[in-house]
Amino acid sequence: MAPLQSFLHGMAEYLTPVKTSSSFREKGVLTPEEFVEAGDLLVMRCPSWTWESGESSKRRTYLPANKQYLVTRNVPCLHRVSAMEYTAEHDEEMDNDDGWTTTHKNRETNSMEDLPEISTREERAVAAAAAAARAGMEPVDDSMGVVEEDDSMNLWHGKSYMVAEEPKDNIVKTRTYDVCITYDKYYQTPRVWLFGYDENRHPLNGEQVFEDISQDHARRTVTIESHPHLSGVAYASIHPCRHSAVMKKIVDHLAESGKEARVDQYLFLFLKFISAVIPTIEYDFTYEMDA
């Protein structure tokens, strides 16, 4: 329980004790009004998050038209979950019912330098071709009448777009994600949706997205489904059936240590625990007290 407690303690430091809403306090669930309230605070504090209205035909009447769901785009995901190592005992932790936050108790993360990187241009080209093949694409190699431009002022390094540049040309493959939070009416909790792009900005398919989800959850709590506010596009979604239980536990722990979570701070707590499921997707949930 130590990691959970230390995380709660760390979280508690961000929070100031104010009154809480009853259903939130007792069950860890939210009303739509509370979801909007919590979303407003998230957008205010972390400007990378925005409200979206989605498609009008898919609008939920119990939410304001311009606040149907939250989204943050182009969130970097620098390395794959498989690059994080687990120690042997971790499987034994799987079936306790402390919620998700304890299943990674013995996880050790390698430092950045140890992570496998695609370091040479050739390897990158191979990786890009492989990614293209996976996505079912034929590489296009046809300039279709465009004459090679005589432009000495175009800095073209032959680099793919989302490649982080570091000194000594130490290249890191950089995927990005769009992360959405919708309100799930049944479970009365927020629900997280992910849509990923590879380093060449091609959409990731389901299998590739699973590489960025904690292996404990990839096929148990995360599934590929249609986004509730956008027609036809499949997103990876973290199933919300355990969300309220985990949120209740977090709120209880805060209360034990003398702190009470405010309902509008729900999404900060929520995103903190969601990061156990998608540990490599670096979305913003820092709770700044000011500025």
Binding site: A125, A128, A135, G136, M137, E138, P139, V140, D141, D142, S143, M144, V146, E148, E149, W156, G158, S160, Y161, E199, N200, R201, H202, P203, N205, G206, V233
Partner: peptide, 14 residues
């Protein structure tokens, strides 16, 4: 992304 002067293709079928 390979540095060629050519159109890009995105396949949304998956």
């Amino acid at each position: 992304s390979a540095g060629k002067l050519a159109p890009r293709v995105v396949d949304l079928a998956p």
